[in-house]
């Protein structure tokens, strides 16, 4: 630290620097002066949309070393004009949360705990169960002989937090398979 000088009295410093209310350089510490915001050092910025409510606020995703380092409101958005609410402002934590699950978990029937499973095995098991259930619960016609062509053995819930493209593939696949109990939060 530099030697103490009366000129460094905060009130004098405020007047000297023109920062009369002490909200700018007059009160900035050397540490603060020497750090750069993550938004300035990011490798790239990607435009996105907040994943919480349906207002659709614009987000800017700051990425460094292939990690999300910051998420800010997008000032270009005519909807949100750069603002985010506490949920939207916390969304970097949604991505980087250490509590987040990044591994597949499997609970066998009657088991008391989870076990690990690789992706290939998991999807194979699900595809097998899907087809078995479909075979077992197939309804070809109703009691009047009218076509039903469906299974009532497979249901799905969710979609309001997903992309349009994802909802489209889900509806398309399930409908072709004859699964009709497909629902999401819009019903709730």
């Amino acid at each position: 630290m530099a030697a103490w000088s009366p000129l460094e009295w905060p009130v004098l410093r405020q007047f000297r620097s023109g920062d009369v209310f002490g909200r700018g350089p007059a009160v900035t510490s050397p540490t603060t002066r020497h750090i750069a915001p993550r938004t300035a050092t990011a490798d790239r910025v990607v435009q996105s949309v907040c994943p919480f409510c349906a207002v659709g606020c614009g987000q800017k995703i700051y990425v460094k070393d292939e990690k999300v380092v910051q998420i800010e409101g997008d000032p270009d958005s005519p909807i949100s004009r750069g603002r985010l609410c506490p949920k939207g402002a916390s969304s970097a934590q949604l991505v980087n949360n250490p509590l987040r699950q990044t591994a597949i978990r499997y609970r066998a029937p009657y088991a008391t705990d989870w076990q690990d499973l690789d992706r290939d095995t998991a999807i194979d098991m699900i595809a097998d169960r899907f087809l078995e259930t479909r075979r077992r619960t197939w309804q070809d016609r109703d009691e009047h002989g009218r076509p039903l062509r469906r299974t009532m053995g497979i249901a799905s819930l969710g979609g309001a937090t997903l992309d349009n493209e994802e909802n489209y593939l889900i509806k398309k696949l399930f409908t072709a398979a004859g699964a009709i109990q497909i629902e999401n939060q819009a019903r709730i």
Partner: peptide, 24 residues
Amino acid sequence: DIGTEVFFLPAATHVEKAGSFTQT
């Protein structure tokens, strides 16, 4: 006593995939 087989599959967040949302 619960015979249900449970698969938990971790999902991608909104920044880890491209796609469209339709807002209100």
